[in-house]
Design a protein around this nucleic acid. Structure first.
Ligand code: FES
Ligand code: FES
Lengths: 136, 136
DNA sequence: AACTCACGAAACATAATAAGTTACATGAAT
DNA sequence: ATTCATGTAACTTATTATGTTTCGTGAGTT
């Protein structure tokens, strides 16, 4: 399946924007990400809804970071991007009456839930400013 | 994205087969899973390659469990099904030269790796016979 | 030997979703 | 008025598990 690279892309852009004075246009951002301005607006729109960025139309317009990097975590951005599941693994018929199938699905479901909690907890522990200090 | 329910399906079938005397035909299994015999052959074929099941052609043929449930873990089956990534989350351009993008991708990649290890470790701790005892 | 059953495998169709693209409307600065 | 840049809708593409059709092959049955 195609991977969802929105989190990676948005983090990259947000940190980049922190270094900038002027607003970044969707066109500019799209070039950095090797993609299309519309894709940028669509994805950045999710972040705007949570107040992490603001957008301005017209001359000199574009996108601006609206919060300090130290005040946002990877989890914040992940959540802003929506509800989609983190796993490619799913369960078979959730409305089955078969007790074996139920037991299997419960075991897998519990494991996925625990693993997702683990991941999101970690995401929640990392603020974006930490990434600017990371060694290459 | 569509979820990969092969693990869930195969566990269900393997446990079911453990209760059976005769071989289970792909047709029979397909009915249980609300799917197609060809899908069953395709997926069960992965398990046969690892020796977990055997298949026999012709009259009275079909699939048989080849190991004890207590000797297989969820991880064994997961691994038998192939290499595909467990996450819907991916990274942006992995060959980027931008240090910020690298740092972002390293952070996300490390977190995904840790979460996957967590999940697979758990999968490895559960043998299939434990699922037959589970309470509904 | 002929028949039937069931797997093996190739080829093609479908569904779902992130991403990509095109087109047009709207608002802001010059 | 013109240009710039976002907002949005609609459509296309890419990808991958799943679904489907078809034919081949081997193993019992009669
Ligand atoms: S931070 Fe601007 S291109 Fe990576
Ligand atoms: S239908 Fe046979 S075990 Fe669920």
């Amino acid at each position: 399946m195609r991977k969802d690279s929105r989190l990676s892309r948005m983090l990259h852009i947000l940190i980049h924007m922190d270094h900038m004075e002027e607003a970044a246009t969707s066109e500019h951002i799209a070039t950095m990400l090797n993609t299309n301005p519309v894709v940028v607006r669509r994805t950045m729109g999710c972040l705007r809804e949570q107040g992490y960025v603001t957008s301005v139309k017209g001359h000199g317009g574009g996108w601006r970071l609206n919060v300090a990097l130290k005040d946002i975590t990877l989890l914040d951005i992940h959540n802003a991007l929506g509800e989609s599941s983190v796993f490619t693994i799913g369960l078979s018929d959730e409305y089955t009456e078969c007790p074996i199938e139920k037991a299997v699905n419960r075991e897998i479901g519990d494991a996925l839930k625990a693993s997702e909690d683990f991941l999101l907890t970690r995401f929640g522990e990392v603020t974006l400013d930490k990434l600017t200090l990371a060694k290459a």
